[in-house]
Amino acid sequence: MALLLNFVIVFVKKLNGNPRNKIIMARKEILKAESKNFNFHYADGTHALKDINIPLYEKKITALIGPSGCGKSTFLRSFNRMHDLYAGNKYDGEIILHPDDTNILDKKVDPIEVRMRISMVFQKPNPFPKSIYENVAYGLRVRGEHNKRLLDDKVEEALKGASLWNEVKDRLQDLAYNLSGGQQQRLCIARALATDPEIMLFDEPTSALDPIATVNIEELMSELKKKLTILIVTHNMQQAARISDYTAYMYLGEMIEFDETDIIFTKPSKKATEDYITGKFG
C-alpha cells in the first residue's frame, strides 16, 4: 500500500515537472470566482472594460497588470461593487462566486453581503480615525458583533495574520495614524482579514510604500494565500512575477492574455504581452 502511494507521489511530481502537464494540473485548480463577459461603462460613457473573462483560482494569487488606464482597477473594484457608490456607472455580464454560484453583480444580491465575503485593501493606507483595535474590529462591529471576548480574539488573530501583532500589541488603543505607512497598510490588511473574507482584493497595495514595507506586504500576501484567494492590481511587473500564480495582462479595457505567471513572463503567446513585459511598451 505504502509502495503504491509512493508511486503515485512520484508520478504526480513527474507530471508537475513537465511544464505542459503543469498547465493541465493547474487547470484542475478549484475555481473560486470568474467574470463572464463583463462590461463596464463609466457615467461619462467611457467603455472602460470590454468582455472581460478572468477566472480566480482558490488560494492562488491572480495579478492584473497593464499600463495606466487599462481598466485593471476598475475591474478589481467591480468585485465588491465599489462602483455602486457612484451614480451613473453601468455594468453588465457576470461575476460568479463559487461554490454557491452567486452572481455578485446581480441587483438582487446585497452589495453589503458581497463586501462581507470579498474584502479590499486600497492603494493608499486608509485607516479610520480610530484606535488600532477599533480599526481592526470595525468590520465585525458593523456586523453587530459586540461580544468583547470574541472581538479581542478576532483582533489579535487578524493582527497576527497581518504580522503586525508584535509591533502593536502594547498599544492597541493608540490612534492608527501614529503608525508608519507600512504599518498602516498592514493594519488595513488586518482590518480586511478580521471578517474572514473568501477573497481579498489588493489595489496597488504597495505603490505608496517604501521598498522594505513593500517586501513585508509581499511576504504577507504569500502567507495569506494559504487561507484565501487574492486578486491584486499592480503597476510593478516584478511584483506580479514574484508573488502571483496567475497573471492577466490588460490593455485599453481588454483582457489581452491570461495564464500562469511563469508562462506570461517567460513565453507569452501574444506579442502585445511580450512587448509590455519586456518593456518595449508601457
Binding site: 465588491n80 465599489m82 457608490l85 453589503i112 453581503e113 463586501r115 462581507m116 474584502s119 479590499m120 486600497f122 493608499k124 486608509n126 485607516p127 479610520f128 480615525p129 470595525y138 468590520g139 462591529r141 458593523v142 456586523r143 488595513c188 482590518r191 480586511a192 471578517t195
Partner: peptide, 20 residues
C-alpha cells in the same frame, strides 16, 4: 478613500457617516 474603506468593510451609508 476613507468612505470607500468603510463601505468595503460592509458598512452601510449611515454607519459610514456616523462611525467614520
Amino acid at each position: 478613500s476613507m468612505r470607500e474603506g468603510a463601505y468595503a468593510m460592509g458598512a452601510t451609508r449611515f454607519q459610514t457617516a456616523v462611525s467614520v
